[in-house]
Amino acid sequence: MVSTQTVPVEHMTAVTVRPKKRRLSWTQRFSLWGSLGYLAAFFVIPVGALVLNSFQTVDGWTLTNYAQVLSDGYYLGIFWETVRIGFISTTITILLSYPVAAFISRLSNRGVALVMVFVILPYFTNTVVRTFAWIVILGREGALNSFLIAAGIIPEPLQMLYNELGVMVGLVYVFLPLAILIQFAVMRGIDTNLLRAAETMGASKVRAFFKVYLPLSLPGTIAAALLVFIECVGAYITPALMGGQGNTMVAQIIERQVRMGLDFGTAAAVVVILGVVVSGIYVLYDRITGMTKLFEDNS
C-alpha cells in the first residue's frame, strides 16, 4: 500500500499509483446492489422459497416430503432409471468424443475452424430441434427404416423410437458437442513434443499414449463426463419426445407434478434432491477444472 499521508502532493499519487479503495463510490454501490437485487428477486429468493417449501406441508415444518419421496418405490425407480440412463449415455458420449476431440486438436487453425462449425452449430441449436431430427430419422416410417428396407437389410421397420434406445441416441447426440468442446480445449494445450520425447526414448506408440497423452488429457475427459452426466440427469426434452412409458426420467415427474399443482411439497423435495446431486457433482468438476478460478485476478 502506498501511504498517501507521506506524499504531500495528493494528485501525484492519483496519476501514478492510485491504490484501490476499500470504500466504494456511490456508482459502484448502485451497480453492486442493483445487480445483486435483481439476482435476489429472480433467483436467490425463489430458489430459497422452493427449498423451504420442500420442508413444509399443511401441518407445518416437516421432513415428510423427503420421507415420502425416498420411501416410494415409484420415485426410487425413476431415480435409478435416470442415473442408469445418464451413466450409459455419458459413457457412450465420452467414447465417441475422445478420439474426435484428440483428432481436431491436432489440426491446423484453419482445420479446427472448419471442423468446429459442425460441432458448434449443433451445440447452440435448440435441443427441441435436435431431438425432432432424430424423430424423423428413427421413426417407424423414418429415414433410417426406409433406407434399411429399401436396401433389403430388414424385412419390416424396427422399433427405434419410444424406447430406451431412442432416449440414449437422443441424449448422446444432444451432449456430444459439449463433450468434444471441453476435451478439445484441454487437448489443444498438450505439448505433443512430450509424446515424441517418450518415443525417442524407446516407448512404443501405445505406451507413449497411456503414459503421456492419456494422463494429460484426463482432466478434460473427466470434466466432460461430469458435465454431460449433470445434463443427462436433468434432461427433459429428449426422454419426453423419444422415450416410452417405461423411460420416464426425473425432470418429467417434476414437470408433471408442478403443472398439475398437486402436492407441491413432494415435487419441491424431488427438485431439491436433483439440485443437490447436481451441485455435488459440480463441486467435483470445479475441483478438477477450477471454473470459478476463471474470475481470479492474474495481477
Binding site: 430458489v47 425432470a251 419441491a268 439440485g275 471454473m291 470459478t292 474470475f295
Partner: peptide
C-alpha cells in the same frame, strides 16, 4: 468476492428446470 462469483455462476450450474420451477412457485 469469490462467493459473489459463485452466486452469479449458479444459474448456469443448477439445472434450468430447478430455476424455472422456483420462479413458477414464487411468481
Amino acid at each position: 468476492k469469490r462467493a459473489l462469483y459463485t452466486l452469479v455462476l449458479l444459474p448456469l450450474i443448477i439445472p434450468k428446470l430447478v430455476t424455472a420451477v422456483a420462479l413458477y412457485d414464487t411468481y
